[in-house]
Design a protein around this nucleic acid. Structure first.
Length: 514
RNA sequence: GCGUCAUUUGUAUAGCGGUUAGUAUGCUGGCUUCCCAAGCCAGCGACCCGGGUUCAAUUCCCGGAUGACGCUCCA
């Protein structure tokens, strides 16, 4: 990771805010809340496009979308295990010059204590009786308190405490009794949810990469153990290759990332389950489709000590950020029967079980999860797309997610007819759900420069010839080349370009004809 | 929370105990039948906040806020 931001990184961050993608921390005119950001006009357009891209990917494999409440009772989070996991015992050094905060469990463990489920009082006793001092300054330690890593709120009269969800996944699991009915008791079940989650991060930083409120896009597969080993989608993708960096390699210090087909990964026991292997492919496929350079994508397996409380196997899809280095953008987790098992134990609802292969026996379904941070994904798409050429800054985003794919310009303000025609074309594009801007300010060259910096892929320019023969130019962001097309072809051409059913190269250039 | 460094217009910067606070870029309007940040004319826009020292503070001192990076922390 870079110690100081280099010029390109600083420029990218400047353009992100200057051009209206990301603002904050918010609110800028009062004392901002750390780790909270606004999406400006272009950022919001792009995020909406990115969300729709994700929807399309999930729908393609017949995942169904649901939406659950952000606020929930503490019961949910006790059952899920987050209450245990998200409360840390902390202690602060009383030396006014030090005042460092320590996590009690890691502090004691580092001193050789073997800990199993201690309470705050137990910890306090140990610290007092064994005269444990601050490891940094040998100062006296204060009293043990808890640090809640979940965000809470008050509801009702009189008010009682509720929790803002720290992940969307658990709220999806609570739907299982309903989902199993909706899917007519047929497993596996594919669902996903996009929405906000909240965490009381100790130190929010790095723009959208570590925030206290953030959006997730999480897909869940409810599945039986047999189906995990015999998974239809796997067969279609068995030869697809993935850049895998196993835990074993990491421990051995081997940083050489190799590509394995899904089949090879199973054969070599890097992965255990076809269904889980397919999910890794799915995550990779989604990111690849966003034009992230392949050398900047890898799948990294969690080592045993990194795994979450629920995970049997866990891999992160990481992207090599131009600004912040390798960072997780998606976690793929084999959660086994942990979640529904816990909810069965706490709620005692029989509907959380399904019939097994063996007659008369019921089992807890397993869950495979793919969890994207939408803000992170957004950030990576944006930063990876900035390219600085000698003469121009280009935001080279894929047309599906770029905030504004098309622009319409009159070559100049006079004669007025040029503006009139251009404005009409602009309105037609909007009417046809084709994102566009209209601009007549400044010279034509300046408008091209300004728009390619925010990812406008194609510009339609109305010139004097338009008045004679109803043709106009279409300009390509990539090489700045232009072709003449007929005015009546704009909508069909723009639609096809947006859907990717034609390329710019395939457009017929009328100026070549005579 | 702690430490280091920083804060002058939208952006990037210059500068000074008394300045009409400079420059570049940007933006606005106008001119130029003008296709790649052209030119010309006119205009817009800033010293983070509070206190102190001083005849006088954007400049010096103290405090605060905020930011970047590091530590801590981190499904």
């Amino acid at each position: 990771m870079a110690e100081k931001l280099d010029d390109a990184a600083a420029k990218i961050l400047m353009l992100m805010s200057h051009r209206g993608f990301i603002w904050g921390p918010s609110p800028e005119i009062y004392n901002p809340v750390k780790g909270s950001y606004e999406f400006g006009p272009l950022g919001k357009l792009m995020k909406t496009n990115l969300e729709n891209y994700m929807r399309k990917k999930f729908r393609k494999y017949q995942f169904w979308e649901v939406q659950c409440p952000l606020i929930g009772s503490d019961m949910i989070w006790k059952a899920s295990g987050h209450a245990e996991r998200f409360y840390d015992f902390i202690i602060q050094c009383t030396n006014p010059k030090c005042q460092r905060v320590h996590r009690v469990d890691t502090l004691l463990e580092s001193l050789g204590y073997n800990l199993t489920s201690f309470s705050a009082d137990d910890f306090q006793k140990i610290i007092k009786e064994d005269k444990i001092l601050c490891p940094d300054c040998q100062g006296e330690l204060g009293s043990v308190t808890t640090q809640n890593l979940m965000v809470t709120s008050q509801l009702g009269f009189p008010a009682s405490e509720f929790i803002l969800r720290p992940e969307t996944a658990t709220t999806t699991y609570l739907l299982f009794p309903r989902l199993i009915q909706f899917f007519r008791t047929k497993m596996p079940i594919f669902v996903f949810q996009m929405g906000y989650a909240f965490r009381n991060e100790i130190s929010p930083r790095k723009m959208l990469l570590r925030t206290r409120e953030f959006e997730q896009c999480e897909g869940q597969i409810f599945i039986t153990p047999e189906q995990e080993m015999n998974f239809e989608l796997f067969n279609q993708a068995a030869q697809e290759k993935l850049p895998l960096w196993s835990a074993k390699q990491q421990i051995a210090g081997d940083e050489n990332i190799k590509y394995y087909s899904l089949q090879e990964a199973l054969d070599q026991k890097i992965l255990q389950k076809p269904a889980y292997a397919w999910l890794l492919f799915f995550a990779y496929d989604i990111v690849k489709g966003l034009d992230i350079p392949l050398e900047n994508i890898r799948l990294r397996q969690h080592k045993d000590d990194e795994k979450a409380h629920y995970a049997h196997d866990a891999w992160d899809l990481e992207i090599n950020s131009k600004i912040y280095g390798w960072t997780e953008v998606c976690g793929i987790h084999d959660r086994g029967d942990y979640d529904l098992g816990r909810h069965f134990k706490y709620s005692k609802k029989k509907q959380l079980k399904v019939p097994s292969q063996n007659k008369g026996e019921k089992i807890i379904p397993h869950i495979l999860e793919i969890a994207f941070g939408l803000g992170r994904l957004f950030f990576f798409c944006l930063e990876q797309a900035f390219t600085f050429e000698e003469e121009r800054n280009v935001l080279d985003l894929p047309i599906q997610i770029t905030p504004i794919p098309f622009a319409v310009f009159p070559l100049m303000k006079k004669p007025e007819e040029l503006s009139k025609i251009a404005m009409e074309i602009y309105k037609q594009l909007i009417d046809n759900d084709l994102g566009a801007i209209y601009d007549e300010t400044g010279s034509i060259g300046k408008r091209y420069r300004r728009t390619e910096e925010v990812g406008v892929r194609y510009a339609f320019t109305i010139d004097h010839q338009t008045l004679d023969d109803d043709t106009l130019t279409i300009r390509n962001i990539e090489d700045m080349s232009q072709k003449r097309i007929h005015q009546s072809d704009i909508i069909p051409i723009a639609s096809k370009l947006l859907r990717g059913t034609i390329t710019y190269e395939e457009i017929e250039d009328l100026s070549q004809k005579d």
